[in-house]
Protein backbone atom coordinates (compact mmCIF):
# COMPACT_ATOMS: atom_id res chain seq x y z
CA UNK A 1 0.00 0.00 0.00
CA UNK A 2 1.03 3.59 -0.42
CA UNK A 3 -0.12 5.35 2.68
CA UNK A 4 -1.04 4.71 6.28
CA UNK A 5 -2.94 7.38 8.17
CA UNK A 6 -2.45 7.54 11.95
CA UNK A 7 -4.53 9.61 14.39
CA UNK A 8 -2.61 11.33 17.19
CA UNK A 9 -4.59 13.01 19.91
CA UNK A 10 -3.04 15.43 22.39
CA UNK A 11 -4.15 14.39 25.89
CA UNK A 12 -3.21 14.92 29.52
CA UNK A 13 -0.31 12.56 30.20
CA UNK A 14 -1.44 9.26 31.70
CA UNK A 15 0.70 9.80 34.82
CA UNK A 16 -1.04 13.03 35.76
CA UNK A 17 -3.69 12.91 38.44
CA UNK A 18 -6.32 15.14 36.88
CA UNK A 19 -8.27 17.63 38.95
CA UNK A 20 -11.73 18.91 38.28
CA UNK A 21 -12.03 22.72 38.14
CA UNK A 22 -13.86 24.14 41.15
CA UNK A 23 -16.72 25.42 39.02
CA UNK A 24 -17.27 22.01 37.44
CA UNK A 25 -16.74 23.24 33.89
CA UNK A 26 -13.83 20.97 33.02
CA UNK A 27 -10.53 19.63 34.29
CA UNK A 28 -7.44 21.67 35.09
CA UNK A 29 -5.05 21.55 32.15
CA UNK A 30 -2.97 24.62 32.98
CA UNK A 31 0.66 23.62 33.54
CA UNK A 32 -0.22 19.96 33.14
CA UNK A 33 2.00 17.66 31.09
CA UNK A 34 0.44 16.84 27.73
CA UNK A 35 1.36 13.84 25.59
CA UNK A 36 0.33 11.77 22.64
CA UNK A 37 -2.55 9.48 23.67
CA UNK A 38 -0.67 6.27 24.63
CA UNK A 39 -2.75 4.11 22.29
CA UNK A 40 -1.96 6.46 19.41
CA UNK A 41 1.75 6.14 20.02
CA UNK A 42 1.30 2.40 19.60
CA UNK A 43 -0.70 2.96 16.41
CA UNK A 44 2.13 5.10 15.03
CA UNK A 45 4.78 2.57 16.04
CA UNK A 46 2.87 -0.13 14.16
CA UNK A 47 2.59 2.06 11.07
CA UNK A 48 6.33 2.76 11.15
CA UNK A 49 7.13 -0.93 11.44
CA UNK A 50 4.90 -1.70 8.47
CA UNK A 51 6.68 0.97 6.43
CA UNK A 52 10.08 -0.27 7.56
CA UNK A 53 9.14 -3.76 6.38
CA UNK A 54 8.45 -2.24 2.97
CA UNK A 55 4.69 -2.86 3.15
CA UNK A 56 3.82 0.84 2.99
CA UNK A 57 5.52 3.88 1.53
CA UNK A 58 4.35 6.78 3.65
CA UNK A 59 3.07 7.35 7.17
CA UNK A 60 0.91 10.43 7.70
CA UNK A 61 -0.01 11.57 11.21
CA UNK A 62 -3.12 13.64 11.74
CA UNK A 63 -4.42 15.47 14.77
CA UNK A 64 -7.64 17.36 15.33
CA UNK A 65 -7.26 20.15 17.83
CA UNK A 66 -5.95 23.59 18.69
CA UNK A 67 -2.54 24.76 17.48
CA UNK A 68 -0.74 23.19 20.47
CA UNK A 69 -1.49 19.77 19.00
CA UNK A 70 1.34 20.56 16.58
CA UNK A 71 3.69 19.57 19.42
CA UNK A 72 2.37 16.01 19.42
CA UNK A 73 2.52 15.92 15.62
CA UNK A 74 6.18 17.03 15.79
CA UNK A 75 6.84 14.20 18.23
CA UNK A 76 5.16 11.85 15.76
CA UNK A 77 7.37 13.16 12.99
CA UNK A 78 10.41 12.68 15.22
CA UNK A 79 9.34 9.08 15.84
CA UNK A 80 9.47 8.63 12.08
CA UNK A 81 6.23 9.74 10.42
CA UNK A 82 6.76 11.33 6.99
CA UNK A 83 4.35 14.22 7.23
CA UNK A 84 1.65 15.66 9.45
CA UNK A 85 -1.76 17.26 9.13
CA UNK A 86 -3.27 19.44 11.82
CA UNK A 87 -7.02 19.87 11.54
CA UNK A 88 -7.48 23.09 13.43
CA UNK A 89 -10.38 23.57 15.75
CA UNK A 90 -10.63 25.36 19.06
CA UNK A 91 -13.78 23.55 20.07
CA UNK A 92 -13.28 20.08 21.48
CA UNK A 93 -14.67 18.19 18.52
CA UNK A 94 -17.32 15.58 19.31
CA UNK A 95 -16.78 12.00 18.13
CA UNK A 96 -18.83 12.09 14.95
CA UNK A 97 -17.31 15.41 13.89
CA UNK A 98 -13.87 13.92 14.49
CA UNK A 99 -14.80 10.92 12.37
CA UNK A 100 -16.20 13.17 9.61
CA UNK A 101 -13.04 15.29 9.61
CA UNK A 102 -10.88 12.18 9.43
CA UNK A 103 -13.05 10.88 6.58
CA UNK A 104 -12.31 14.05 4.59
CA UNK A 105 -8.59 13.42 5.03
CA UNK A 106 -9.11 9.78 4.08
CA UNK A 107 -10.89 10.89 0.91
CA UNK A 108 -8.01 13.21 0.01
CA UNK A 109 -5.18 10.84 0.83
CA UNK A 110 -6.73 7.44 0.05
CA UNK A 111 -4.72 5.48 2.64
CA UNK A 112 -4.65 1.68 2.53
CA UNK A 113 -4.93 1.55 6.30
CA UNK A 114 -6.03 3.90 9.07
CA UNK A 115 -4.56 3.18 12.48
CA UNK A 116 -6.12 4.82 15.52
CA UNK A 117 -6.00 4.22 19.24
CA UNK A 118 -8.80 2.16 20.71
CA UNK A 119 -9.67 5.07 22.97
CA UNK A 120 -8.49 8.49 23.98
CA UNK A 121 -7.56 8.38 27.67
CA UNK A 122 -9.13 11.77 28.41
CA UNK A 123 -12.75 11.36 27.24
CA UNK A 124 -12.51 7.51 27.17
CA UNK A 125 -15.01 7.54 24.28
CA UNK A 126 -13.80 4.55 22.27
CA UNK A 127 -15.85 5.63 19.23
CA UNK A 128 -13.83 7.46 16.60
CA UNK A 129 -12.44 4.45 14.74
CA UNK A 130 -15.76 2.63 14.56
CA UNK A 131 -17.49 5.80 13.38
CA UNK A 132 -14.91 6.49 10.71
CA UNK A 133 -15.21 2.90 9.45
CA UNK A 134 -19.01 3.20 9.33
CA UNK A 135 -19.01 6.54 7.49
CA UNK A 136 -16.35 5.28 5.09
CA UNK A 137 -18.27 2.03 4.52
CA UNK A 138 -15.13 0.04 5.31
CA UNK A 139 -14.19 -2.71 7.81
CA UNK A 140 -13.16 -2.05 11.37
CA UNK A 141 -11.06 -4.16 13.66
CA UNK A 142 -11.01 -2.70 17.15
CA UNK A 143 -8.62 -3.37 20.06
CA UNK A 144 -5.95 -5.02 17.95
CA UNK A 145 -3.12 -6.86 19.66
CA UNK A 146 -1.68 -8.26 16.42
CA UNK A 147 -1.80 -7.10 12.82
CA UNK A 148 -0.57 -8.95 9.73
CA UNK A 149 -0.89 -7.59 6.21
CA UNK A 150 -1.45 -10.02 3.36
CA UNK A 151 -1.76 -8.00 0.18
CA UNK A 152 -5.33 -6.79 -0.09
CA UNK A 153 -6.38 -8.05 3.32
CA UNK A 154 -5.25 -7.82 6.90
CA UNK A 155 -5.52 -10.44 9.63
CA UNK A 156 -6.16 -8.81 12.97
CA UNK A 157 -6.14 -10.35 16.43
CA UNK A 158 -8.53 -8.47 18.69
CA UNK A 159 -8.62 -8.42 22.47
CA UNK A 160 -12.20 -9.29 23.41
CA UNK A 161 -13.89 -10.21 26.69
CA UNK A 162 -13.72 -13.92 25.89
CA UNK A 163 -10.09 -13.92 24.84
CA UNK A 164 -8.65 -13.27 21.39
CA UNK A 165 -10.74 -12.96 18.26
CA UNK A 166 -9.15 -13.19 14.84
CA UNK A 167 -10.78 -11.48 11.88
CA UNK A 168 -9.81 -10.93 8.26
CA UNK A 169 -10.63 -7.54 6.80
CA UNK A 170 -10.34 -6.28 3.26
CA UNK A 171 -8.21 -3.18 2.84
CA UNK A 172 -8.60 -0.29 3.16
CA UNK A 173 -9.76 -0.66 6.73
CA UNK A 174 -9.71 1.05 10.10
CA UNK A 175 -7.80 -0.73 12.85
CA UNK A 176 -7.82 0.56 16.42
CA UNK A 177 -4.99 -0.63 18.60
CA UNK A 178 -4.69 -1.98 22.11
CA UNK A 179 -1.71 -1.69 24.45
CA UNK A 180 -0.14 -5.06 23.75
CA UNK A 181 0.32 -4.56 20.00
CA UNK A 182 3.89 -3.26 20.38
CA UNK A 183 6.24 -1.09 22.42
CA UNK A 184 6.72 2.33 20.90
CA UNK A 185 10.28 3.47 20.24
CA UNK A 186 11.91 6.38 22.02
CA UNK A 187 12.51 9.58 20.16
CA UNK A 188 16.20 10.49 19.71
CA UNK A 189 17.45 14.06 19.83
CA UNK A 190 18.75 14.21 16.22
CA UNK A 191 15.34 12.98 15.04
CA UNK A 192 13.68 15.90 16.80
CA UNK A 193 15.91 18.27 14.79
CA UNK A 194 15.18 16.43 11.55
CA UNK A 195 11.46 16.44 12.28
CA UNK A 196 11.42 20.24 12.17
CA UNK A 197 11.99 20.07 8.42
CA UNK A 198 9.19 17.62 7.74
CA UNK A 199 5.94 19.01 6.32
CA UNK A 200 3.12 19.89 8.71
CA UNK A 201 -0.01 21.14 6.96
CA UNK A 202 -2.62 23.04 8.89
CA UNK A 203 -6.23 22.91 7.72
CA UNK A 204 -9.02 24.77 9.53
CA UNK A 205 -11.79 22.27 10.21
CA UNK A 206 -14.28 24.57 8.42
CA UNK A 207 -12.32 24.08 5.18
CA UNK A 208 -13.11 20.38 5.30
CA UNK A 209 -16.80 21.11 4.98
CA UNK A 210 -17.57 18.93 7.96
CA UNK A 211 -21.24 19.01 8.76
CA UNK A 212 -21.70 19.99 12.38
CA UNK A 213 -24.10 17.86 14.39
CA UNK A 214 -25.66 18.82 17.69
CA UNK A 215 -23.15 17.78 20.26
CA UNK A 216 -23.71 15.99 23.48
CA UNK A 217 -23.61 18.81 26.01
CA UNK A 218 -21.09 18.51 28.83
CA UNK A 219 -22.99 19.83 31.81
CA UNK A 220 -20.94 19.13 34.90
CA UNK A 221 -17.51 17.71 35.73
CA UNK A 222 -17.24 16.24 39.23
CA UNK A 223 -14.70 14.22 41.15
CA UNK A 224 -15.88 10.64 41.69
CA UNK A 225 -17.03 9.42 45.05
CA UNK A 226 -13.94 8.40 46.94
CA UNK A 227 -13.70 5.05 48.64
CA UNK A 228 -12.84 5.32 52.31
CA UNK A 229 -9.52 4.06 53.51
CA UNK A 230 -10.14 0.93 55.57
CA UNK A 231 -8.28 -0.93 58.27
CA UNK A 232 -4.85 -2.53 58.25
CA UNK A 233 -4.81 -5.93 59.90
CA UNK A 234 -1.68 -7.46 61.42
CA UNK A 235 -1.84 -10.99 60.14
CA UNK A 236 -3.89 -13.65 58.35
CA UNK A 237 -5.96 -14.30 61.49
CA UNK A 238 -6.85 -10.60 61.54
CA UNK A 239 -7.80 -10.71 57.87
CA UNK A 240 -10.09 -13.68 58.40
CA UNK A 241 -11.70 -12.04 61.42
CA UNK A 242 -12.29 -8.83 59.44
CA UNK A 243 -13.86 -10.77 56.56
CA UNK A 244 -16.10 -12.68 58.98
CA UNK A 245 -17.08 -9.38 60.52
CA UNK A 246 -18.35 -8.21 57.14
CA UNK A 247 -20.20 -11.48 56.60
CA UNK A 248 -17.90 -12.39 53.71
CA UNK A 249 -16.66 -15.65 55.18
Amino acid sequence: MDKILVGLKRVVDFNVRVRVKNDGTGVETGGVKMSINPFDEIALEEALRIRERGEAKEVIVVSIGASESAQQLRTGLAMGADRAILIQTTAAADPISRARALLEIVNREAPGLVLLGKQAIDNDDNQTGQMLAALWGRPQATSASKLELNGDTARVTREVDLGLEIVDVDLPAVVTVDLRLNEPRYVKLPDIMKAKKKPLDEIPIADLGVEASPVIEEILFEPPEQRQKGVIVDNVAGLIAALKDKGLL
Binding site: N126, M131, L132, S143
Partner: peptide, 23 residues
Protein backbone atom coordinates in the same frame (compact mmCIF):
# COMPACT_ATOMS: atom_id res chain seq x y z
CA UNK B 1 -20.00 -1.45 27.30
CA UNK B 2 -18.43 -4.85 26.84
CA UNK B 3 -16.07 -5.43 23.92
CA UNK B 4 -19.14 -6.47 21.89
CA UNK B 5 -21.09 -3.28 22.61
CA UNK B 6 -18.09 -0.98 22.28
CA UNK B 7 -17.39 -2.39 18.84
CA UNK B 8 -20.99 -2.23 17.65
CA UNK B 9 -22.72 0.84 19.09
CA UNK B 10 -20.45 3.60 17.70
CA UNK B 11 -20.89 2.06 14.26
CA UNK B 12 -24.66 2.21 14.76
CA UNK B 13 -24.41 5.81 15.99
CA UNK B 14 -22.37 6.89 12.98
CA UNK B 15 -24.83 5.30 10.56
CA UNK B 16 -27.59 7.24 12.30
CA UNK B 17 -25.49 10.42 12.18
CA UNK B 18 -25.36 10.95 15.94
CA UNK B 19 -22.78 10.89 18.70
CA UNK B 20 -22.71 8.07 21.20
CA UNK B 21 -22.75 8.33 24.98
CA UNK B 22 -20.15 5.87 26.26
CA UNK B 23 -20.40 4.05 29.59
Amino acid sequence: STTFGKDLMPRVAALLGVNQISD
